[in-house]
């Protein structure tokens, strides 16, 4: 009989003896993984939505007068002085009128009596993708407002501000739930293994006396930690997937969720969460062994 066969048999025996406690620990670990991964999934999706939205971010500078080609060139240089931009587009009053008419579609006849130059000329500035932070966008907007002939700068500040606050709040929730995962996984597993060790003190003492090596005694406890981490994380992620599946099936096409495509974790993230859970549970088991296993 080789070492690993004996170890697996010993672990199986331990599991049979202490399964109610282990089951409770496993459920606690899976709940922690579920809470953490739930918020992390929302966070990732929000980031992805934010990323998509920022691709379409445009700052519109409304001008008092329609600039001459020479002035357009000067303004273009002035804008580029602040930062490199992806695109600068001048919209004449007539172009703005035509766009508005196109947007009205069948109702464009409401514009029949309006003069073709009633809308202001504007500059549409598309910043580089590197310009991501809210404060950077605000600074750029303030700079554009100082351009000569500028009336007003618009980029949907309210929406952008709310979006950034929400993602910041989410990142705090993700950090907190991550902390919760670390605490529960480590302490619950440590506590379970401690109870197991204390409950089996007599047997461990006997094993030592009949010549069991330290590895023979310790490895089953480490395996229990690994198993708790693995099953706990798999159960947590499976529950999250079920929840995700249900949500996308039943709530898609309604309001908020329709704003962006909701996607599940890529395999790399799933693997990382499972590994993290295993490492934490094994660490909990190891801590208890170091503290309570006297061999």
């Amino acid at each position: 009989m080789n070492f690993w066969f004996s170890i697996f048999r010993q672990t199986g025996r331990n599991l049979r003896q202490t399964w109610p406690t282990l089951l409770m620990t496993c459920l606690t670990v899976s709940l922690s993984v579920l809470i953490f991964s739930f918020f992390y999934l929302i966070y990732l999706n929000m980031l992805s939505a934010g990323d998509k939205a920022s691709h379409q971010l445009r700052l519109v500078v409304y001008l008092e007068e329609e600039p001459s080609p020479a002035l357009q060139e000067q303004l273009r240089r002035k804008i580029s002085q602040f930062d490199q931009v992806q695109e600068i587009k001048f919209i004449s009053k007539a172009e703005a009128f035509n766009r508005f008419a196109d947007q009205l579609g069948d109702n464009r006849d409401v514009l029949t009596d309006m003069p073709a130059d009633f809308l202001p000329a504007s500059i549409e500035v598309t910043p580089l993708k590197t310009l991501r932070g809210l404060s950077q966008i605000q600074l750029f907007s303030e700079y554009l407002a100082t351009l000569p002939g500028s009336q007003k700068v618009q980029y949907g500040q309210k929406w952008v501000e709310r979006f950034y606050s929400f993602t910041q709040l989410l990142s705090i929730v993700v950090l907190l739930s991550g902390f919760l995962l670390i605490l529960t996984a480590t302490f619950m597993v440590a506590s379970t293994i401690r109870l197991t060790i204390l409950g089996r003190q007599e047997e461990l003492e006997l094993l030592k006396l009949v010549g069991a090596t330290n590895n023979y005694i310790r490895t089953p406890f480490l395996l229990e930690g690994i198993l708790l981490g693995l099953t706990g994380s798999l159960m947590g992620l499976a529950s999250l997937y079920a929840l995700f599946h249900w949500t996308t099936r039943h709530l898609s096409g309604t309001g908020f969720l329709d704003l962006f495509t909701f996607t599940f974790f890529p395999p790399g993230v799933l693997f990382t969460i499972i590994c993290l859970s295993i490492i934490l549970c094994t660490a909990g088991s190891y801590t208890s062994m170091q503290k309570f296993l006297r061999i």
Binding site: M1, N2, F3, F5, S6, R9, Q10, L206, L207, V210, G211, A212, T213, Y216
Partner: peptide, 13 residues
């Protein structure tokens, strides 16, 4: 138990 810790074959045990 005393034979398992020295990894004896299950049949022998």
């Amino acid at each position: 138990i005393s034979m398992e810790v020295s990894y004896k074959q299950p049949q022998i045990i």
